[in-house]
Design a protein around this nucleic acid. Sequence first.
DNA 1: TATTTAGTTAAGCATTTGCTTAATTATCTC
DNA 2: GAGATAATTAAGCAAATGCTTAACTAAATA
Lengths: 107, 107
Amino acid sequence: MSRSTSSTDIFQAIADPTRRAILDRLQHGEQPVMQLAEPFAMSLPAISQHLQILSAAGLVIQHRSGRQRIYRLNPASLKPVSDWVSQYEQFWAAKLDALEEYLEEQP
Amino acid sequence: MSRSTSSTDIFQAIADPTRRAILDRLQHGEQPVMQLAEPFAMSLPAISQHLQILSAAGLVIQHRSGRQRIYRLNPASLKPVSDWVSQYEQFWAAKLDALEEYLEEQP
DNA sequence: TATTTAGTTAAGCATTTGCTTAATTATCTC
DNA sequence: GAGATAATTAAGCAAATGCTTAACTAAATA
């Protein structure tokens, strides 16, 4: 069965909590795999696999430095998610506006 | 093996393209299941299961009207996603600012 | 009351996912 | 060159996921 989800789907990539945690860590600057893996209770290959998925989605960029692989955040690739969710922000903002208006009309 | 992903995880809920499409459709107003299912090339139980996942994540709210189940968007429950992604918006905004500055400094 | 309509629940199945350990590649250091 | 270090690739496995069809529940209608 082949569902339409491409393997580089961004929404799929950020669905996993470990991968989001990796991205969060990368906010404090680029890091080699060893250092990235440090807080997680799983094997290095597991982290490596997560990094491949993040790479495929364009969320991280990699370069080599000696025998280390340095991973860096590529935050602009989150734009599709940002755009998608901002549609709904309007919805709840509209709701809050309506509440404000109502409160102001009260004596 | 029990991964830490709770069954009501919002990021997991919006990872599936069909579920995002359902949410998108609900932007135009609340709808019964039949109507929601109409554009999708899958069985009604499949849609029903997707709606259960969206419900569990708090993304939709349901009420009954006769024999119909009316589903309505609950957009505020997307806030965790919005908050998470907005951290990264700062990153790419900062990058664009830096680019602007650079361009202004050019002769 | 019998039937149709709207939807869910149950059971089953193939694929995908997230991990593991073992083997491999590449670089650095002695 | 022989190890040690950093990381990936390969193979395999249990659990989760996204569907399916069949059976069920509940409300409307003839």
